[in-house]
Design a protein around this nucleic acid. Structure first.
Length: 305
DNA sequence: AGAAACCGCGTATGAGCCAA
DNA sequence: TTGGCTCATACGCGGTTTCT
């Protein structure tokens, strides 16, 4: 994270964060001597440091909850978000959705297209992790209400479902990086590779170039070319460089990875772009965009000729 | 609340075509 | 012949909906 690092020199490395998050998940509030146990799992960190680290995270959440930190407003980019907005409110899907129920019967998508859904931002995911830690698995309502306020309990539950599935399949060889790879609230790290989440990695630099997809999205087609071109590895970041989670394309959505939960997003930035770190909360220099993704998928040399 | 199914999207890859 | 670019397709991921 950020702050802490600066503060006392006891910087938190990715590994530390990973260990911290894992321990946090392992030792719930009810655990006896929780902090001691967590500290024991995080090499080099004292109980005080652990507590501090946790408090910072909680603080970030509080800021967000209190409205100090604008939540991403999904909104604009292309159509997709149109609905997004509502979502936050509640309706997202819900709203109509359940109206949807009407359709349930038939489930025919015909009557209404299936909602595309709004990808979870890293911030939301981190909040989710914090909520999970605090309320535990199953209390999606509380998590939705107190942490991931932009998502309905149903969405939280759904996200949790995917998240746990992902965790369970952690070792599959061939995996793409996903937002669920982020297991730590803290710095970006992730235990494992984390990557670009939805794929949109713009990173491949390639893609970006081409189209960032904005519209492009045309599946398949659009980018491809880019990719290849891309065959050249992007300079810095690994393949999956910047994760931009679900970004709707609109802007640079920067991923939160690497950034603490609190990212106040500047009002003018719409979705995700956090530009300005909350004072003090983020360490300057912290990558706003993510860091690298550890999880880079090694591109097989074979590729293309 | 949990789990599974469904669906859309984007990425990764392999293959083909064309120009140098 | 080699290298670059484009096309086509399979696969994985994420989100929503529905069922239990």
């Amino acid at each position: 994270m950020t702050v802490e690092e600066a503060s006392d020199g006891s910087a938190w490395s990715r590994e530390d964060d990973i260990a911290f998050e894992r321990a946090l998940a392992n030792y719930t509030d009810e655990s006896e001597q929780r902090w001691e146990k967590i500290a024991a799992d995080v090499p080099g960190k004292s109980v005080e440091q652990i507590k501090e680290h946790y408090e910072l995270l909680v603080e970030d959440v509080s800021r967000i909850e209190s409205g100090c930190v604008p939540l991403p407003a999904y909104g604009s980019p292309e159509g997709s978000n149109g609905h997004a907005c509502d979502e936050g409110g509640s309706s997202k899907k819900g709203g109509n959705s359940h109206a949807g129920e009407s359709n349930q019967g038939s489930k025919s998508k015909s009557d209404q297209e299936r909602r595309k859904g709004i990808a979870w931002t890293e911030d939301e995911h981190r909040l989710f992790l914090l909520g999970l830690d605090k309320y535990g698995k199953g209390d999606w309502r509380s998590i939705s209400r107190n942490f991931v306020v932009t998502r309905t309990p149903t969405q939280v539950a759904s996200h949790a479902q995917k998240y746990f599935i992902r965790l369970n399949s952690m070792n599959k060889d061939r995996r793409r990086s996903s937002i669920h790879d982020i297991t730590s609230v803290g710095n970006a790290d992730v235990s494992t590779p984390q990557g670009p989440i939805t794929g949109q990695n713009n990173n491949n630099s390639n893609n970006n170039n081409n189209n960032t997809t904005g519209s492009a999205a045309v599946a398949g087609g659009g980018n491809k070319s880019a990719k290849q071109a891309a065959s050249q590895p992007p300079p810095g970041p690994p393949m999956y460089g910047t994760p931009t989670i679900g970004q709707p394309v609109g802007g640079p959505l920067v991923s939160a990875v690497g950034t603490p939960v609190n990212l106040p997003a500047p009002p003018h930035m719409a979705y995700g772009v956090h530009a300005a770190p909350a004072p003090g909360s983020v360490v300057p220099g912290a990558p706003m965009n993510l860091g690298q993704m550890p999880y880079t998928m090694p591109r097989t040399p074979t590729a293309h000729r």
